[in-house]
């Protein structure tokens, strides 16, 4: 498939190019909705489509006014602030608990391993609306509903499975004899952990942390139920914006978030390569 052999028949050639075109269209379907919002966010009008001026590439068709609105509107600024307050706290909780547990789970003898794994992974499996409903009922019983910590705890719980999965994956290639070597030379378990194990698994920990961060940063269902007006996050503000009065500022916010995803994707890819190199799975 990769290259058409010189002896290919006409039918094969036709099929080869049809297939390529079809794949191209699917890739277009995947990427077009994300790319289209970028130019639209610079629209000088309050429309959600390309104006005549934009299509003619006239400068008066474009402006930064939606970005300006985002950076000056108190609603959006409050939402941004809340997101920036909640996501890192949830990430730290999820990453520290998750990394410890992943190290425990990768030891050779863990009783009830599959049962424990099922419980720890469950926040990723259970549909968000069910988690949100359960958390809403339970957290209002114990007075956490509508509080900052309620949202942080909930988001941390939702993020932990990703940390577990990425860190256990990194630990698969980890050579346990390194730990034994460190211990035999007199290092205590804490020193061994920070000096030997941690540097080797750090790519997994960081990418797990990024997953946990993006889980919290993008999460809207749980915060919609658990949060009160004081915990309104960016996705929440976008959700209400889309449902009620749809303003083009959303496109500016969306474009900024696409930029964040691109940065995250690049960092993760770099980490993956580094981790594979460290574990000797691929030659640089």
């Amino acid at each position: 498939m990769s290259a058409l052999p010189p002896y290919a028949s006409t039918g094969q050639k036709v099929w080869h190019y049809t297939f390529r075109v079809a794949c191209g269209l699917i890739f277009f379907f995947l990427i077009f909705p994300i790319l289209v919002i970028l130019p639209l966010s610079f629209n000088a009008q309050d429309f959600f489509t390309f104006t005549k001026e934009m299509l003619a590439f006239k400068p008066e068709g474009y402006s930064f006014k939606h970005y300006q609105d985002f950076f000056t509107n108190p609603d959006w600024q409050q939402a941004l602030k809340n997101s920036v307050m909640i996501a890192p706290a949830a990430t730290i909780l999820a990453t520290s608990f998750g990394t410890l547990a992943a190290i425990g789970l990768s030891r050779p003898h863990v009783p009830y391993r599959s049962a424990i794994m099922a419980i720890l992974i469950s926040p990723m499996i259970v549909p968000l609306i069910i988690s949100a409903a359960g958390m809403y009922f339970f957290y209002s019983r114990i007075g956490l509903q509508g509080t900052y910590w309620g949202v942080v705890l909930a988001h941390a719980a939702l993020g932990t499975p990703f940390v577990i999965i990425t860190v256990t994956a990194t630990l698969v290639g980890f050579d346990q004899s390194l730990v034994r070597a460190a211990a035999s030379m007199g290092a205590n378990p804490v020193t061994t952990f920070f000096k030997v194990q941690m540097p080797l698994i750090i790519p997994g920990v960081v990418s797990g942390g990024l997953f946990a961060f993006i889980t919290s940063f993008d999460e809207v269902v749980v915060v919609l139920f658990l949060g009160s007006a004081g915990q309104k996050t960016l996705p929440w503000q976008m959700f209400t914006g889309l449902r009620e009065q749809i303003s083009p500022t959303i496109l500016a916010v969306a474009s900024l978030m696409v930029a964040i995803s691109i940065v995250l994707l690049t960092v993760l890819e770099g980490l993956r390569r580094r981790s594979e190199r460290l574990r000797g799975l691929s030659p640089g």
Partner: peptide
């Protein structure tokens, strides 16, 4: 890239 892009961003894109 779509996988990593916020769900709300993609939903807004489709709405547009």
């Amino acid at each position: 890239l779509p996988f990593w892009t916020s769900l709300l961003v993609r939903t807004s894109a489709w709405k547009v």
